[in-house]
Design a protein around this nucleic acid. Structure first.
Lengths: 210, 210
DNA sequence: ACTTGATTGAAACAGTTGTTTGAATCAAGT
DNA sequence: ACTTGATTCAAACAACTGTTTCAATCAAGT
């Protein structure tokens, strides 16, 4: 690999990611991280200063990695906004529940979203806000006569429907049968959410002119 | 009060609730809980055995309390299911983002939902499953021709839209202006979610017979 | 071969954790 | 007044935490 120099640094970040994502910042121990990353206990302080700065570095790594792993498509001019919405939802869902090489990134990001620390502001600015702006743009094409406030509510409805499958995943497993749970793949869920959202937009636009 | 006997026991649970909700199980310290509850350090072990059993008792208390604070309405026979859906969504949202005497219950429950511990199974059985069944019943009235799997997907869409305002509340505050955030009251959000969901159901039923 | 600077390693540090202990205090029954 | 059982209290315990220390090791430049 080209990253032979910072090999242990990378191993520590990778290990820290999975431990932080599983247990949270406080419950995670530097000893466990270093053991998992096959690094000495002092490596954390040597490379990152202290536990907190390791955590922040890990969060940054997480969303950069995630954005790279599952990129958004770029649509040619004049693409049907309904197609864009469907693609957007599928990408969002894939980022949230899709399987990939490592899964701790999304869990760590969820923690930051629900209980923000210092690392969150940058994540919102670099990662979440652009996504939200993209969704807002797509929805604006679909409901140009609606107010910006209303469009934002629809955007939150979209995000909420997707996020739900990540946040309450353990509970969902308890509520539906194993085979039905197994059918919850990004593709299928994205189709459902897109259909429901498009229907909702139709109704909102219809109710609006009365 | 009538609960003079277990006064300190109640104080400890109340204190434990807010500390556990704010920091999670591991980061919370028995010392902080006892200090907040004006009880001696040994009170936790005396009344609950250990920290873990205190936590479980606190979670149980949380959802019983929450169900009592914000009950579901009971509808007369033959009520329009659309009215029922609107009421259900409003109740769900109020439970999630509404202000009440104490706010830690919902935060603690969210923690359990996202990262279940032993206390979660009982909560799903006693609290979440009945709610989900009620929602499923209402949606069944509205879309009797759809499959049970499809109805469950719509139910998850409803829950997801509501839950979103609780889970990502800090991020939402970063994304919209303060005055717009202030307008996010249960009443308004419930109307939006109901409208969007009803529109989605219409479209699903329409697409279905093609 | 020697030097230099970066990295690794094992051990120790001071502080905090959940839990236990045993005496002190209290309330109520006799 | 005495007894009894439940409750409170301060102190201590052993285990674990993040962090520091400083010598050992390594890789490369001279």
């Amino acid at each position: 690999m080209a990253t032979e120099v910072d090999d242990t640094r990378a191993r520590v970040i990778e290990a820290a990611g999975s431990v932080f994502a599983n247990k949270g910042f406080e419950a995670a121990t530097v000893r466990e991280i270093c053991q998992l990353g096959k690094a000495n206990l002092a490596a954390v302080n040597y490379y990152f200063g202290d536990k907190k700065r390791l955590y922040i570095a890990t969060v940054e790594f997480a969303y950069r990695q995630r954005a790279e792993q599952v990129p958004f498509p770029s649509w040619p001019e004049g693409t049907d906004p309904r197609k864009k919405l469907a693609d957007f939802i599928l990408t969002l869902l894939t980022r949230m529940i899709g399987r990939g090489p490592s899964q701790w990134e999304r869990d760590l990001m969820l923690r930051e979203v629900a209980r923000p620390t210092e690392a969150c502001q940058e994540m919102v600015h670099d990662f979440i806000r652009p996504q939200f702006a993209m969704l807002f743009g797509i929805l604006s094409e679909l409901m140009s006569t609606a107010s910006a406030e209303r469009i934002r509510l629809v955007a939150f409805s979209v995000v909420g429907q997707c996020l739900h499958y990540r946040v309450t995943d353990p509970v969902i497993q308890m509520l539906v049968s194993p085979q039905e749970y197994a059918s919850y793949e990004p593709q299928r869920l994205a189709e459902h959410i897109t259909e429901l959202t498009l229907g909702g937009i139709e109704r909102i636009l219809r109710d609006q002119r009365k």
